[in-house]
Amino acid sequence: MNQTPQSSPELTDPRLLQLAPEDNVAVARRTIAAGEQILIAGQMVCLSGEIPVGHKLAVRHIAAGQKIIKYGAPIGSATRDIACGEHVHTHNIASEYLPAYTQRGLIAQ
């Protein structure tokens, strides 16, 4: 049985790469076409859209406002509900980053 590298041992598709165990997204090792079946934590999910190589998909349901975790750290938050297996990118997540010096500038005004 091929064990997928560092993804949850409960059977995640070898086409996916999960960078830290607590991540709610995984990265496509190669482009995966829309309509393909993909194994996420033991569940078969049909991809609603293409996931290009290096892009992310949700490995569980992510509610609007929830943080997106990659490398075990937040990379932004969901701007709407994201289904398991859905492409995660600029259309459904947003940066939460505000440079600290900008925030201070605002406070100073």
Binding site: V27, K56, K70, I75, V88, I93, Y97
Partner: peptide, 9 residues
Amino acid sequence: EGGLSTIEE
């Protein structure tokens, strides 16, 4: 284009 969505990422 390479799949990075935010500056944090």
